[in-house]
């Protein structure tokens, strides 16, 4: 199980690097799609079929198509000097590296003791729905407001006239 997980993680990493170092925007978008699929596989491994499929539906069916659509619409092609390393970005990257090491170190030094909350792991849609509409009712409502804001915002920015 561990090997399978890490092989999958390796693929995630490869696709993630493919996204951030890619030269062709469209290829990067596809790499991102494959990355999302590996994450969906992780959800399947953990036993949560529901989340895995939702992940594929939302990302593959919606988000990546949207990104690809905009890439074609804007006519973005290969841009050879798309990234260059200036002094500022270099220091940023070094700081980020130290930050990452710090986070890993901090997490490794502490004892994270997980206590099982239930006798078994409930991955059914019914279980998730119960939690969503009882304990997480208010976040759910706020998320709906957030979606509405997002829709109106995207509409306002993307439409032609003022």
């Amino acid at each position: 199980m561990k090997t399978v997980f890490y092989i999958n993680a390796l693929f995630s990493l490869i696709f993630a690097l493919g996204v951030i170092f890619g030269k062709n925007p469209l290829r990067s978008a596809l790499s991102l799609l494959l990355f999302f699929l590996t994450i969906a596989l992780d959800f399947f491994f953990a036993g949560s079929e529901y989340l895995g499929f939702v992940q594929i539906i939302v990302y593959a069916g919606g988000i990546i198509v949207m990104i690809a659509f905009v890439i074609i619409l804007l006519g973005l092609k290969k841009e050879s000097p798309d990234y260059d390393i200036t002094v500022r970005s270099f220091t940023g990257i070094i700081l980020l590296g130290f930050f990452a090491l710090g986070v890993l170190y901090g997490l490794a030094k502490s004892v994270l003791h997980l206590i099982p909350k239930a006798p078994y792991f409930d991955t059914s849609a019914a279980g998730i729905g119960d939690a969503l509409f009882s304990k997480y009712l208010l976040p759910f409502e706020v998320a709906s407001i957030l979606l509405l804001v997002g829709v109106v915002l995207a509409f306002i920015f993307a439409k032609k006239e003022v």
Partner: peptide, 18 residues
């Protein structure tokens, strides 16, 4: 027969777009 069959159908039609 999987529990979330309908989601599988949607996921397939999502990838089908590509």
């Amino acid at each position: 027969d999987i529990n979330v069959g309908i989601l599988l159908l949607l996921a397939i039609s999502g990838i089908n777009t590509y």
